[in-house]
Measured scan of single mutants.
Amino acid sequence: DDWEIHFNNITIRLHGVSEEQIEELKELIKNGAHEEELRKWAEEVNR
């Protein structure tokens, strides 16, 4: 699925990401992940 997530003036566009991966991302954000951590997560997902 395609997703677009907005938070802290950042837009993250995701393509072909599962519901499970979105839940992981929500947890990262909820736990106060920094932009660098989110980038690493996105790189892993996009492999």
Score class of each variant (00 low, 15 high):
residue 1 D to L: 15
residue 1 D to Y: 15
residue 1 D to K: 15
residue 1 D to I: 15
residue 1 D to F: 15
residue 2 D to A: 10
residue 2 D to R: 09
residue 3 W to G: 03
residue 3 W to P: 04
residue 3 W to F: 14
residue 4 E to P: 00
residue 4 E to R: 04
residue 4 E to I: 11
residue 4 E to Q: 05
residue 4 E to K: 05
residue 5 I to S: 06
residue 5 I to W: 08
residue 5 I to F: 14
residue 6 H to E: 08
residue 6 H to L: 10
residue 6 H to I: 14
residue 6 H to C: 10
residue 7 F to V: 12
residue 7 F to Q: 01
residue 7 F to L: 12
residue 7 F to R: 01
residue 7 F to I: 11
residue 8 N to D: 09
residue 9 N to D: 11
residue 10 I to H: 09
residue 10 I to N: 03
residue 10 I to M: 07
residue 10 I to L: 09
residue 10 I to A: 06
residue 10 I to P: 01
residue 10 I to T: 08
residue 11 T to H: 08
residue 11 T to Q: 01
residue 11 T to A: 01
residue 11 T to M: 05
residue 11 T to C: 05
residue 11 T to E: 05
residue 12 I to L: 04
residue 12 I to V: 06
residue 12 I to S: 08
residue 12 I to W: 00
residue 12 I to D: 02
residue 13 R to C: 13
residue 13 R to P: 02
residue 13 R to Q: 08
residue 13 R to W: 02
residue 14 L to R: 02
residue 14 L to P: 02
residue 14 L to F: 02
residue 14 L to Y: 00
residue 15 H to S: 10
residue 15 H to A: 08
residue 15 H to L: 09
residue 16 G to P: 04
residue 16 G to T: 10
residue 16 G to N: 15
residue 16 G to E: 09
residue 16 G to F: 12
residue 18 S to I: 04
residue 18 S to F: 04
residue 18 S to H: 05
residue 18 S to C: 07
residue 19 E to P: 11
residue 19 E to W: 12
residue 19 E to S: 12
residue 19 E to R: 13
residue 19 E to M: 13
residue 19 E to A: 13
residue 20 E to D: 11
residue 20 E to H: 12
residue 20 E to P: 05
residue 20 E to A: 14
residue 21 Q to H: 11
residue 21 Q to G: 04
residue 21 Q to C: 08
residue 21 Q to V: 13
residue 22 I to L: 09
residue 22 I to P: 00
residue 22 I to K: 10
residue 23 E to T: 13
residue 23 E to D: 14
residue 23 E to H: 12
residue 23 E to P: 01
residue 24 E to S: 10
residue 24 E to L: 11
residue 24 E to P: 01
residue 24 E to M: 08
residue 25 L to I: 09
residue 25 L to T: 00
residue 26 K to V: 14
residue 26 K to Y: 15
residue 26 K to D: 03
residue 26 K to Q: 09
residue 27 E to D: 10
residue 27 E to R: 14
residue 27 E to N: 13
residue 27 E to H: 10
residue 28 L to N: 00
residue 28 L to W: 02
residue 28 L to Y: 03
residue 29 I to E: 01
residue 29 I to C: 09
residue 29 I to D: 00
residue 29 I to R: 01
residue 29 I to G: 00
residue 29 I to M: 07
residue 29 I to L: 08
residue 30 K to Y: 05
residue 30 K to D: 04
residue 30 K to Q: 09
residue 31 N to W: 03
residue 31 N to Y: 03
residue 31 N to K: 11
residue 32 G to R: 03
residue 32 G to T: 01
residue 32 G to Y: 01
residue 33 A to C: 11
residue 33 A to L: 10
residue 34 H to Q: 14
residue 34 H to F: 08
residue 34 H to I: 10
residue 34 H to M: 11
residue 35 E to K: 04
residue 35 E to S: 07
residue 35 E to R: 04
residue 35 E to G: 07
residue 35 E to V: 09
residue 36 E to L: 05
residue 36 E to R: 06
residue 36 E to W: 02
residue 37 E to C: 07
residue 37 E to H: 06
residue 37 E to N: 04
residue 37 E to Y: 07
residue 37 E to P: 00
residue 38 L to R: 00
residue 38 L to Q: 00
residue 38 L to I: 11
residue 38 L to S: 00
residue 39 R to A: 11
residue 39 R to T: 09
residue 39 R to M: 15
residue 39 R to F: 14
residue 40 K to L: 08
residue 40 K to F: 05
residue 40 K to I: 06
residue 40 K to V: 02
residue 40 K to Q: 12
residue 40 K to H: 10
residue 41 W to I: 10
residue 41 W to A: 11
residue 41 W to H: 06
residue 42 A to I: 15
residue 42 A to D: 09
residue 42 A to Q: 07
residue 43 E to S: 02
residue 43 E to P: 00
residue 44 E to Y: 02
residue 44 E to T: 07
residue 45 V to R: 03
residue 45 V to N: 08
residue 45 V to A: 14
residue 45 V to G: 01
residue 46 N to R: 11
residue 46 N to S: 13
residue 46 N to Q: 15
residue 47 R to A: 15
residue 47 R to D: 13
residue 47 R to Y: 04
residue 47 R to P: 13
residue 47 R to H: 08
residue 47 R to V: 14
residue 47 R to F: 10
